[in-house]
C-alpha cells in the first residue's frame, strides 16, 4: 500500500464565514441582499450587522465558497432557516465553471445535512434555468413544487417557479420518499 501524508491531500474548495476581504465581491456573492451599498464602508457596516447575531440565533446564515489555494471567494450561499428542519438555499456566483458550481452546491448540501442537521434543503429557480436544474438533479435534488406562471420576467412574461428539494438521506431511510 502506498503511503501518503494528510498534508498532501488538496481540497480545492471549502465553505467558510464571510471576511472583510470578501466585501468587494459582495453583490455578486449575495445578490439577494439589497442592503449592502456601493461603498465599501456600507458593506462593512452591513457585514457587522448581519454577523453580530449569535450563531444559532440567526435565521439567515451566510457562507462563502472559497478556493482554498487562493483564499478567493467564488460564491456565496445563504441558508434561510424556515424551521429546525428546513432551510431555503440562495446563492450567488462570481463568473466560474460548472464544476465549481457543482462543488459549491455539493458542499452546501453537505453542510445543511451534517452541520445544520436539516431534513430538507430547498432552492427556487425559474423555468428555463436548465443548466442549474440539471446540476441540482445530478447531486440529488428533486423537483418538489412547480407553480405555474408564478414568476414574471423583465418583459412581464409569466414563468413557472420551480422549487427543488434535497432530503437528508437519514430521514429518507427512516420515512421513505
Amino acid at each position: 500500500m502506498n503511503s501518503f501524508s494528510v498534508e498532501s491531500i488538496t481540497v480545492p474548495y471549502r465553505l467558510r464565514a464571510i471576511r472583510e476581504l470578501d466585501l468587494e465581491g459582495l453583490p455578486q456573492l449575495f445578490p439577494e441582499s439589497t442592503v449592502h451599498g456601493r461603498e465599501l464602508a456600507d458593506r462593512r457596516a452591513w457585514l457587522r450587522d448581519v454577523e453580530s447575531i449569535a450563531w444559532g440565533k440567526n435565521p439567515r446564515l451566510r457562507l462563502v465558497l472559497e478556493e482554498t489555494s487562493t483564499g478567493r471567494a467564488l460564491a456565496g450561499f445563504t441558508f434561510d432557516r424556515k424551521s429546525e428542519a428546513v432551510a431555503i438555499l440562495r446563492y450567488g456566483f462570481r463568473p466560474t465553471t460548472a464544476m465549481t458550481q457543482i462543488a459549491g452546491f455539493v458542499l452546501a448540501k453537505e453542510f445543511a445535512f451534517t452541520t445544520l442537521r436539516l431534513i430538507a434543503l430547498r432552492t427556487d429557480m425559474v423555468q428555463g434555468q436548465d443548466p442549474l436544474a440539471n446540476i441540482h438533479e445530478q447531486i440529488g435534488y428533486r423537483q418538489a413544487v412547480r407553480l405555474r406562471e408564478w414568476w414574471r420576467d423583465a418583459e412581464d412574461n409569466a414563468l413557472d417557479l420551480i422549487t427543488y428539494e434535497a432530503v437528508n438521506p437519514d430521514w429518507e431511510a427512516k420515512h421513505g420518499r
Binding site: 424556515k82 424551521s83 429546525e84 428542519a85 428546513v86 431534513i119 430538507a120 430547498r122 423537483q143 418538489a144 413544487v145 412547480r146 407553480l147 405555474r148 422549487t163 428539494e165 432530503v167 430521514w171
Partner: peptide, 10 residues
C-alpha cells in the same frame, strides 16, 4: 396540486 414540501410542519 403543484407539489409538496418534505418535513415542512413541526
Amino acid at each position: 396540486l403543484a407539489g409538496s414540501y418534505t418535513a415542512d410542519i413541526p
